[in-house]
């Protein structure tokens, strides 16, 4: 279980409070108005920002001060998910070993992961030689080999068209099923939440609420969410 225990953060005029827990393996959407702190919440969990107060716990262990790479999360960003000068296989391999000195078995795992996301034989290419969708797939292959307890997605497919985005969300689901990982996904689209996340965290008015059932939340939105959804 991932717990944010009375976490508080203040940056100038911006403030965020979070006191919530996410079950292991749960799939949770993070929605709310722009600037409310959705990405900040993910940054707190990923370890890019330290909270002013409170603790972040994973299975009862305090990881508030842990370095981003030491946390049980794999993260995909809006862009810059691949290093352009490294091959696709090397980019995926970084999820296994930081110095890229991979063993034979590890190299096989990279190949398998690439095959799993439909990029068989693309390992030697550079990201620039891939389409936008293929780049997302390559990043997902790395998430696959990282094999962390939670996958954090910060609007990762915003640059893709609707059909491609749906395809990628399906692929994310398959990856989650395979690894048993949980999911936290920031999205502007309530439809994404319905599609992939049974639960939703609403971030609004300086608070990140504990996760509730997505269906109920979207069918009976509280005022802040209603204003945002329009």
């Amino acid at each position: 279980m991932l717990m944010l225990e009375d976490v508080r953060l203040r940056q100038g005029d911006f403030a965020l409070r979070a006191d919530l827990a996410v079950e292991t393996g749960a799939r949770v959407a993070v929605i709310g108005p722009s600037g409310a702190g959705k990405s900040t919440l993910l940054s707190l969990i990923a370890g890019f920002i330290a909270p002013d107060r409170g603790r972040i716990l994973w299975d009862g262990k305090d990881m508030t001060g842990a370095a981003p790479g030491k946390r049980p999360v794999a993260m995909l960003f809006q862009d810059n998910n691949l290093f352009p000068h490294l091959t696709v296989a090397e980019n995926v391999g970084l999820g296994l070993r930081h110095n890229l000195r991979l063993t034979e078995t590890e190299r096989d795992r990279v190949e398998t992961a690439l095959g799993r996301v439909g990029l068989e034989g693309y390992g030697t290419r550079k990201p620039a030689a891939l389409s936008g969708g293929q780049q997302s797939r390559a990043a997902l292959a790395r998430v696959l080999v990282q094999d962390r307890a939670f996958v954090l997605l910060d609007e990762p497919f915003a640059a893709l068209g609707p059909a491609l985005k749906a395809e990628m969300l399906d692929l994310v689901e398959e990856v989650l099923e395979e690894t048993g990982a949980g999911l936290l996904i920031v999205s502007h689209e309530p439809e994404d939440a319905r599609r992939i996340a049974p639960q939703t965290i609403l971030v609004a008015d300086g608070r990140a609420e504990p996760p509730v059932t997505t269906q109920d939340l979207l069918d009976n939105p509280p005022p802040a969410l209603r204003a945002y959804l329009g």
């Binding site: 990923a46 370095a67 981003p68 790479g69 993260m75 999820g95 930081h98 110095n99 990282q146």
Partner: peptide, 13 residues
Amino acid sequence: RLSATLGIGGWAW
């Protein structure tokens, strides 16, 4: 951030 979340630092970075 990508480097940090993958835990790449020091000489490897």
